[in-house]
Write a protein that binds this DNA or RNA. Structure first.
Lengths: 240, 240
DNA sequence: AAGCCCTTGTGAACGAACGCACAAAGTCGT
DNA sequence: ACGACTTTGTGCGTTCGTTCACAAGGGCTT
């Protein structure tokens, strides 16, 4: 077995659990909403309610960023907004390239939440010649041939793949070769990327199917009594 | 109150882990792709590679559905496609209502992956009077006032919320009151729903922010050696 | 200043998910 | 028919994530 050397699991600025990172945007948004309502101080209980999470989880999440609260009082909204934003990298400018200007790419280019908060659509790219030069949300569409040039000139490190599935991997390969190290993938295929490149998948069809799974279960449990579903359900106390 | 009752960690009915359910759509899609290429038998190793997951994880996932493989051979593609589809509820028809026909709702209405595989857009609904009656992807847009009627007549149990954030909760409440028990939420707010209603969130801005977080860390680790990261970050609260 | 009250931050228990490694169980060659 | 080979299905240890419960620590009142 390996040595018993205790390695510090959570350094101050690093080692933030992935589950926590995934919730930081949620907290950030809730905090901004509170700030816009004029709230200056918020307790973990209130913020947790606004974000729809458990308050203990919220406190532990925030504790990974540092001790930004005041015991007996709560968190200063302004200060916490800034800290979360800084941790998420929202205090810097992120030029983003969107590849694929179909229905989805169109919507993304127009989507307000995409362009705000540090992100800026550097360019729209599509391989359809007919689209080249057209304006979408005030942004011109460039041909796919210019992809590498755009990435280099704008120092793009984050790309959005909104192409049809069959070409997504090719596009992704070109993106990575050109220097992109983070990809948000809307295409219904699992993208293969080398070490060091992050891919996050947004799969609309999958989400619906997951809902359908649970929906089917609900319908089944309505039609048949519980005893018919499980072989021998112990007659424990009924909840509620 | 956000302190919700302890919901069963495993999926309702038979105990299929939630993490497994979330991957079933992925397997289903990979299997369909294999079938279309004429593949009739697939090993866990091959299917796992196609889906981009660990093969042991794939086998354990599939084992929750039943013993559908043949040792020494693999899985029959046709058979497995059917079993996964049945488990996901894709063998039945799911009428879906999309509320909010903005950029995103427009894209969703046109999105092929949404309408295929058991799902069917029963109606598009928007509160913008100007849109009423317009055709999107061959489907008419109905006014919000008809929401309850549509849900009842089409027996809709799954709804997509693609409205602006501020009205999402109101729309959701009406959906639930009208009988919807599964909601796919694209609005950037956490929806509150009663027990028994499922909500899945697709948050485009959050996904980008999560990528930005990791991207920032990559850049930091390139610029500074690891030893420079360990000390406490200066608490510069005078910023701004 | 001291004590009370409030909320944060966290140790610890619990539970879920992952992945290794292997036994079980089938096929195929001889 | 039998043994070698292949691949599934799964027991088990490890890691990751969630939640409880409470001590630590700050503010407020007296």
């Amino acid at each position: 077995m390996s040595g018993s050397r205790v390695e510090r699991p959570l350094a101050r600025g690093r080692g933030i659990p992935e589950a926590t990172v995934a919730r930081l945007p949620l907290y950030h948004r809730s905090l901004v909403a509170l700030r816009e309502r004029g709230v200056t101080t918020v307790s973990s209980e209130e913020l947790a309610a606004a974000a729809g999470v458990n308050s203990a989880k919220l406190r532990k999440d925030l504790s990974h960023l540092g001790s930004y609260g005041t015991r007996g009082v709560g968190y200063d909204v302004d200060y916490l907004v800034y800290q979360v934003a800084r941790e998420l990298g929202l205090t810097q400018d992120w030029p983003v390239v969107i590849v694929g200007v179909g229905n989805l790419g169109h919507a993304l280019a127009n989507y307000g939440g995409f362009t705000s908060r540090g992100f800026r659509v550097a360019a729209l790219v599509d391989n359809d010649e007919a689209l080249a030069g057209e304006l979408v949300n005030g942004l011109p569409v460039y041909p796919l041939a210019k992809l590498e040039q755009i990435i280099a000139e704008h120092h793009v490190s984050i790309a959005v793949v909104a192409t049809p599935g069959p070409v997504a991997q090719d596009v992704c390969d070109r993106l990575v070769a050109a220097g992109v190290t983070s990809v948000l993938n809307f295409a219904p295929v699992p993208l293969q990327v080398p070490e060091g490149v992050d891919v996050r998948k947004v799969d609309l069809a999958s989400e619906l199917q997951i809902l359908a799974f649970h929906e089917q279960r609900k319908q089944m449990s309505l039609l048949t009594p519980l005893t018919a579903l499980a072989p021998l359900p112990p007659r424990t106390e009924a909840a509620g």
